[in-house]
Simulated scan of single mutants.
Amino acid sequence: MKHHKSVTPRKQIVSPWECAKATEIIIRRIRRDASYQVRRKLDQVTVKRYVGVFLAEKEMPPIKVALVNDVPHLVDGWHRLAALEQIGRTATRAMVIETTEREAKWLAASANMEHGLALKPGEVRAVFRAFVRARKHRNARGVLLSYREIGFESGKPHTTVRNWMMKDFPKVAAEYGSMEEFKGKGGLTELPVLEPSMREAAEALHRALSTFRTTDCPQQRGAILQLAEGVLQEMKEAGNWEAIPF
């Protein structure tokens, strides 16, 4: 069997929430800073739905709070907290971690990308800004990620990411070079049309890619590759598809 030269994966920090434990917290003590929320406003339909869930005494995931300079900031759970206040709750379960302001704002922004409620274009750009400000555009060695890699993180084509970088972070864009030059090895490109079903498929591929990158074990990485190759082969053999030129 032919072995390919291994490539050092991008090191990603394990989610800080994995080690956090749910604790009871007084709602009025939680600071809701608008700079931690990329959504321009709450979706009242979602709030109303959550009110029904809580009134039915059903469990929902605890909210997430970041201690920044000893001040508890809401990171994830804006709609849940609004629903709890509507029914008169004064306390709730929360996952609490201590971190920096930049990292907390990135955690808040990225949480919105994981929710089922789609972000508006301007809100996605706010996520991008939090991504760069938290230095997520560099790997563990400080090397710049390619525009394609950043684009796959945000669900945007690399050309959009490049334009945003040039306008919002010109000094960082200068490190990438001219408009035609792209550093890094690149990554998966965005599908031309991200309909709901396609977006779900893209997110599943992204999760598989993230798992591959964060796994150091060669055997596990090989198993992921083998599984991916098998799935890809089945998809090709299913027929009724055509290659999309990028």
Rank of each mutant, 00 (worst) to 15 (best):
D70W: 03
R31P: 01
A94I: 08
D43P: 07
V231S: 12
R221F: 04
C217Q: 15
G122I: 10
G151M: 06
I224T: 13
C19A: 09
E175F: 04
S154N: 14
A126Q: 07
E57D: 13
T214L: 02
A82W: 06
T90F: 13
F169E: 07
L209Y: 06
A118N: 15
K183H: 09
G222M: 01
W17Q: 07
P170C: 01
E203R: 15
A34K: 11
P245R: 13
F131T: 06
I13L: 07
R89H: 14
A238C: 02
H137C: 15
L194P: 02
L55G: 02
N112I: 11
K5C: 02
Q86C: 12
L42A: 12
E200M: 14
C217N: 15
C217K: 15
K64R: 15
V38D: 07
L107I: 00
V124E: 09
A91G: 07
S210L: 10
A173P: 13
P61Q: 10
L191C: 07
I97Q: 05
L84W: 08
K171G: 00
T8W: 00
V96F: 12
E98D: 12
Y36A: 02
I244K: 06
E24D: 09
D168S: 11
E242N: 11
E101L: 13
N139L: 00
I87M: 11
T160C: 03
M198F: 04
Q219V: 11
G222V: 01
Q44F: 10
R89Y: 12
A109I: 08
F182H: 09
V172Q: 03
R141C: 06
F246K: 06
G186I: 03
V7W: 10
K185C: 01
V68R: 06
V47E: 09
N139F: 01
L232T: 09
P218C: 08
C19M: 06
M166P: 01
G155M: 05
G116P: 01
K167A: 14
K5R: 08
A243I: 05
G155A: 05
P170I: 04
I150G: 00
P192S: 11
P218I: 08
I27S: 07
E153L: 11
G177N: 15
L191T: 04
I150S: 02
F54W: 03
S178T: 10
E242Q: 13
E103M: 03
F246I: 12
R199F: 01
I27K: 14
W241Y: 14
G116Y: 07
V143A: 05
R125A: 05
E59A: 12
F54C: 10
V231F: 10
G184A: 04
T46I: 14
L225H: 04
T214P: 00
I30G: 03
I97L: 10
L194D: 06
T189W: 04
A104M: 10
I150F: 01
I97D: 05
E59F: 12
C217V: 12
R40T: 15
T90I: 09
H158S: 11
K64W: 01
V53P: 00
E18P: 02
M235K: 08
D70E: 15
L42V: 14
A22K: 04
F169H: 11
